[in-house]
Structures are given as C-alpha cells and as structure tokens.
Design a protein around this nucleic acid. Structure first.
Lengths: 178, 178
DNA sequence: CATTATTTTCAGTAATTACTGAAATTACGG
DNA sequence: CCGTAATTTCAGTAATTACTGAAAATAATG
C-alpha cells in the first residue's frame, strides 16, 4: 500500500470503505479499485504486494469479482499466472453492475412476490394481498424498463442519458401522438 | 411472529433475509415489511409482539427507517405513543429509496472523485487520472439523469416507465430532429 | 510422471455488526 | 412539579462476517 501514489491510495481506500454500502467487503472493493486504475492486467501477487493482504484473501476476492463479472481473467504469453483486469468502457462496467445487482437484489424478491400472489384470492383481495400486488407490479414494470434500456447499445444509451430534462418533452410528445 | 398469517410471515422473513443485500440488517428489513403490509399504523410494542425482538432493537430499527424516510411517525388522538406507517404510494416509496441510496452510495464517491480530479495535471493526464475522470463523468451524468427523472411527478414518471421499448423510438425521433 | 509454480480451500481466529436488558431520558397528564 | 408511560441510550454479549496461514488441489514444464 505504501508503494502506491497518493491519489491511487485515496481512491483505493475509498472503495474499500464504500464496500459496506455496496454489499461487498473492504478487500473486494480495494482489489476492484486497484484493477480499475491499473494500466496493465495484474496477477494475484501484484495485488498482495499493493494492498498488503493475504494471498488467500486476494484469491477469494478475485473469485467474487469474477462472479460479479466485474473483472476478467486473462493469460499473458509465456507466463502461467492468471492476470486480471477490468473492462475499458465505463458504460459497460455500469451495465454489468446494474444487471448483477438486479439479479441479486430484485429477482429473488420478485419471485417471492409472484408466489404469494398465486395463493391470493382473486375475488376478495385483502389489504396485504393488495399491497403485495402493488409492490410486485412496480418491480416488474421497473425491471422491464431497465431491461429495455440495457438492451440499447452503449452509444444509444449514452444519448438517452444525455437527454436529461429532454425526457419530459419526449414524454409529452409521445402522449400527444396517442 | 406466530400470530401472523402465512403469507405475511413469508413476506416479512424474505425482507429480513434480503436486508443483507440491501445494506440493512434483518430486523430493520422485517420492521419495514411489517409496516408495509399493515392496515393501520403500528406502535413499537405492536412490532415487538409481531416480530419477537427486543423493544430496544425495534426502537433502533425505527430510527434507521426514519433516517431513510421510509416510515413516518404519527400520533393517534388520545394516545401518547408513537405510531409508524409507510407511505401508501409505492412509487413515492421507490423514489425515496432511490434518493436515499444515491445520497449514501453515490454522493460520497462523487465527492472523492472531484477532489482527486482537482489535484490532477490538465496537460499531461496519467492513465489513472483519466480513469478517475471517466468514472466521475459517468456518475455525474447518471445522477443528473436520475435527478431529472425523479423530478417528474409520479404520473409522468409512470408514463416514462411504461414507455419501455418506446424509449428507443423516441430517441431516434429526437436524433432526427437535431 | 516427477517437479515446481500457482491457485484454491478451509479450519481457526480476528474483527465487525447485531441484539438485548437495564438504566437513563423524555414528555405527557394530572 | 410529581408520577407514570413511553422512548432512547448504551455497555455487554451473541452472532455473523472477514481474514489468515497452512495444507490440498490444479496445472504447466521438462
């Protein structure tokens, strides 16, 4: 950690601390941050050297980051070690993050809500049944929407994001059309 | 917990378990779920009775949920106890959740990235400086966009979400116009 | 197929986070 | 103000999660 320059260290430490808010632990956050800034792919021992954590901790952290599809493994010619890096395009990174979070945070909930709705009585809907349906519909709608957005290619997505306030005008226009 | 009907219990237990993914603890998740389904506002002892956790735990959990603006405190006439409930409109709930998560997860990061960029050399941008700037720009853009979306009134927002795939067509149209 | 480099697993331990019960504080009603 | 109902705080403890070192597994090389 001492061998890193000030800005890099600040960045890495911040990602470690934010880890808790993001549902990952400190080391995982730091490993990701290090790889994100790295100019070239790093091997596990590079990470051990940079962060000063145990080799096994790095191994587990890399495994978790791979499960998140946030780092990719690659091999350098004439070297049998595994090297790791993050994708170059930050938009692609964001997309992966959103997809994976959805998978972990939203999908299981939607599945439970669906089950609960199946058991519910169509005719005489109780208050909690109604509440469950409202949450279900909201989640389903939001997910359909984010699916549509994520399906856009990066450059179209960038355009949508850049629209900003223009979204409002487009909606108004869309309404007038129907 | 035994006094609750099956579906309610399933719902509450699920929210307790999901808590870890969402950065809140089990009890906080359960308290929220209970209040979300409840027909009327509940007081702390109602929650203790329903969930079987300690009074102090309920107190702390309610405090956290209030900090998240996910439950509101109210008083019933002729009763000096505090009662709690969740907003009726699920879209309002979603908006609050997004705003609060942004505040906790994104704002601090954006602030660190801004600081790091200030120190950076405009002329001769190093690889990590460039990487930091890319992440900063992405976050800033996304936040501006979500701000714009959240500023829409609920019914317009619902329309945007319902647009779904139509977003693509609207963007195409927007492009043709400029 | 033996050697060596590399990665993974996992039991034990350290660190952190969640929860409780008791005591302190607040605030209402007489 | 006094008494009481209600809530909050907090020190201690329980439960969970993170991390390490050593041992096991995997895989490349001659």
């Amino acid at each position: 950690m001492e061998s890193l320059d000030d800005d890099t260290r600040t960045f890495i430490l911040h990602f470690g601390e934010m880890g808790s808010h993001w549902g990952i632990n400190r080391t995982v956050g730091q490993v990701y941050a290090l790889l994100y800034l790295a100019e070239k792919p790093l091997c596990a021992d590079d990470i051990v050297a940079a962060l000063g954590v145990s080799r096994s901790n790095v191994s587990m952290s890399l495994k978790e980051l791979q499960a998140w599809r946030l780092v990719k493994l690659q091999h350098l010619s004439g070297d049998r070690r595994d090297f790791f890096s993050t994708p170059d395009d930050v938009w692609e990174i964001a997309r992966t993050l959103i997809e994976e979070r959805r998978k972990r945070e939203l999908d299981p909930t939607l599945s439970v809500l669906r089950d609960l709705m199946l058991r519910s009585d169509e005719q005489d809907e109780s208050h909690s049944q109604q509440r469950i349906r409202e949450m279900h519909d909201l989640l389903e709608q939001s997910m359909r929407w984010s699916d549509d957005l994520l399906r856009l290619n990066p450059s179209t997505l960038k355009q949508v994001i850049r629209l900003g306030d223009g979204v409002r005008k487009l909606v108004d226009f869309g309404n007038r059309k129907t």
